[in-house]
Computed example of a mutant assay.
Amino acid sequence: MEEITGLLNKDNMDALVAAVSAFGLKLLAAIVVFVVGRWLVGRVTRLLEAGMKRADTDPTLISFFRNIIYFGLLTMVVIAAVSQLGVQTTSFIAVLGAAGLAIGLALQGSLANFAAGVLMIIFRPFKAGDYVEVAGVAGSVEELHLFTTKLRTPDNKIIIIPNAQVTNEPITNYSALDTRRLDLQFGVSYSDDLDHVRRVIKEVLDAEERLLEDPAPTIGLLTLGDNSVNFAVRPWVRSSDYWGVYFDLQEAMKKRFDKEGISIPFPQRDVHLHQVAS
């Protein structure tokens, strides 16, 4: 009886030693896979980051893709290391896929804003400092994030717009080009000499040093209105001088018209009273 018990104990010990040895080898293999895989992930991430920097990619986009690639590859390394321990990873991958689908459905709006932010960072319809009109709002671009765009309005208000709204509507970038055209309109009376008016307008434009000579300003009779003859005045300026010239030119034109006796009519209505005998 004692011999049988000793034999069983010996068999159990041998089995235990074999099991521990096998598990130890698996654990060692898992550790090696994780350590080597993590080193490779870091190496690949650094190479991709260096490549994006050489391609002059936006820093925000570089940071985002670096993190996404790093944690995505690291997840694959962890799954490979766990599989070395004999754990079935098929169900684990299925759970991750289901969780990712559920998160994606719950964050549809945020993902739309994110996709729009990535597209804007890649295609660059505007940059920080540009004066733009987007989603019905005009202002200077303060910051462009992956989910939102921050604008500062001329009256010093900060407006944050979801990127999906920015890309779903037309974008007007007033700062994209170095020059802009002023679209001005001046109305004069039908009794004024049109040649005289045209000459006065040209003299006022010539006196404004900030106007560009090329393209040359355009002065033309636009419409014969109900109350006035309307001239279209189209000079060109540098984008940075737009509003300064816009305000100063209208003031200078009004003062010169007054000096030259050119009237700027406004809508009037004549009322005739008829006395009816009682």
Rank of each mutant, 00 (worst) to 15 (best):
V87T: 13
V118Q: 05
V82P: 02
A135M: 15
S175D: 07
H145L: 13
A135S: 15
F92K: 00
K202F: 01
P154N: 02
R181S: 10
L194Y: 01
N163H: 04
D193G: 06
L184V: 04
I160T: 15
L73M: 15
A80N: 06
V166W: 00
R198D: 10
L73P: 01
F123M: 05
K202V: 09
V166D: 04
F92R: 00
I159Q: 08
P170D: 07
I79A: 14
H145R: 14
L73N: 09
Q108W: 05
A138S: 15
L73W: 07
I121F: 12
L105N: 02
V77Q: 11
Q185A: 08
N173K: 05
S189Q: 02
L85N: 14
E143L: 15
V166M: 01
A106S: 07
D206P: 10
G129Q: 12
D178Y: 02
E209Y: 09
S83T: 14
A80I: 09
P154Q: 03
F123W: 11
L205E: 06
I159S: 02
K127N: 14
A102M: 12
A207D: 15
A102N: 03
A99V: 11
E169R: 13
G72M: 08
A116S: 15
N168E: 11
I161L: 09
I161A: 04
N156C: 01
D178E: 14
L85F: 13
G139V: 15
S83Y: 13
N113V: 07
I158W: 00
D192M: 04
G187C: 02
T89Y: 00
V82S: 05
G100L: 10
A81H: 04
L105T: 02
V134Q: 10
S191N: 11
Q84P: 01
L96P: 01
I122E: 13
K150H: 09
R124L: 09
E208M: 11
E142G: 11
I79K: 06
A116H: 10
N173Y: 03
F114W: 04
A81W: 05
D206Y: 10
R124P: 06
Q165T: 01
I103W: 03
Q88K: 06
S140C: 13
D193Q: 08
G187S: 06
R124N: 12
R199W: 03
G72P: 04
Q185G: 06
F126P: 09
L146P: 06
E208G: 08
I171M: 07
S83C: 07
K127S: 15
V197S: 01
V137C: 14
L194W: 00
G187I: 08
L182M: 03
D178W: 00
N163I: 02
L205T: 06
V87Y: 11
F126R: 04
G117P: 09
